[in-house]
Write a protein that binds this DNA or RNA. Sequence first.
DNA 1: TTGAAATGTCAACATTCGTTTACTTGAGTT
DNA 2: AACTCAAGTAAACGAATGTTGACATTTCAA
Lengths: 188, 188
Amino acid sequence: MICKSNKPRNADATKEAILEAARIAFSEKGIDGVGVREIAEAAGCNAALVNRYFGGKEQLFAAALVGAFDMSQLLELPKDQFAEAMAAYMVSKRTEHKTFDPMFLALRSIFNPSAMELVRQEIQTHVTDVYASWLDGENRQLRAAMIGSLFAGFYLSRFVMCSESMGFEHDETLAPLLAKTLQIYVEG
Amino acid sequence: MICKSNKPRNADATKEAILEAARIAFSEKGIDGVGVREIAEAAGCNAALVNRYFGGKEQLFAAALVGAFDMSQLLELPKDQFAEAMAAYMVSKRTEHKTFDPMFLALRSIFNPSAMELVRQEIQTHVTDVYASWLDGENRQLRAAMIGSLFAGFYLSRFVMCSESMGFEHDETLAPLLAKTLQIYVEG
DNA sequence: TTGAAATGTCAACATTCGTTTACTTGAGTT
DNA sequence: AACTCAAGTAAACGAATGTTGACATTTCAA
């Protein structure tokens, strides 16, 4: 053998590399669109290590999902600034397809039965409940869910309808439209 | 052989049976979640016939998609009744998982690259453009896309967040909320 | 240095998939 | 009734999947 692997062995580092590669790959192709060999190659290791460190593909997805939805900083704003700030945030997020995006991590695997349950729990505990308790008035759960619904639908539509003729790039028109919608759900 | 197939041979009928089985199966499991053998079995024929009659799985999906989005009757309403009518329509549609639903036919396969292009074209020509030309005022394409976005997000959220604690079943609360949102996009 | 545990590699397993080929069975025509 | 072509079936192919076990290599403590 001429070529030996000269990089030092480090379980924690490779485990983290697998996790990072998984987050990106799952975001781009979904849990059913990417194979463990592909993830392992992106992480620079062997596919068998995925099972050794995470127990399987599904549990790797679960690990990639934890902490993906941390929207706490958005909720530190005063309520009368929230709608506008979130609209600006939604508009600003471009789907470059190359950077990790927690929204797509969830969206692209949402129809895999195992993944859906994981996503559902993660969204329920870290998004909907947080929003609901932050809101005032009645029907907080429903209004929080509608905020998430608007978020998901907007992401999905802009991703699918990427055509320039749709008008999704006219931020100065889009942002107020979104803000007005969000305001409805915030006010109740 | 004791048991012979006694049903008459009919190419058009089996072709239609395959198409109908495909529409249901694709709606329930997505293009990547169902196999041609499964579809053929539901249609009561052999998997090879799928390729004989449609040329392949992807073209079968394309055939299942044509005409799925016919929203023309919703647009016959006067504009001041549209938001309320569509909100009522969205609320009334329960995702029973057993009946064919064009929205899920598109949604569940949206992240398959081949299917996404087909869905995008179908939505663009049969939904967005129709809505856009129906609307008045400025930014019609964008506002039409936002109506579709709201529609998709709502379907998706209600499907994923099927928990009873979310409030998606309180039609008397949900419908006015949706109508108020739709009105924003109709008015512009 | 020696031994053992940790880390990584390799090859194979058993499925499943879409698709194709060769074949059999049926219906309609002359 | 015999012939013919369409309709349907069965089996196999090649590729890709997640997963596993045996094996090799490195690391580190005794």
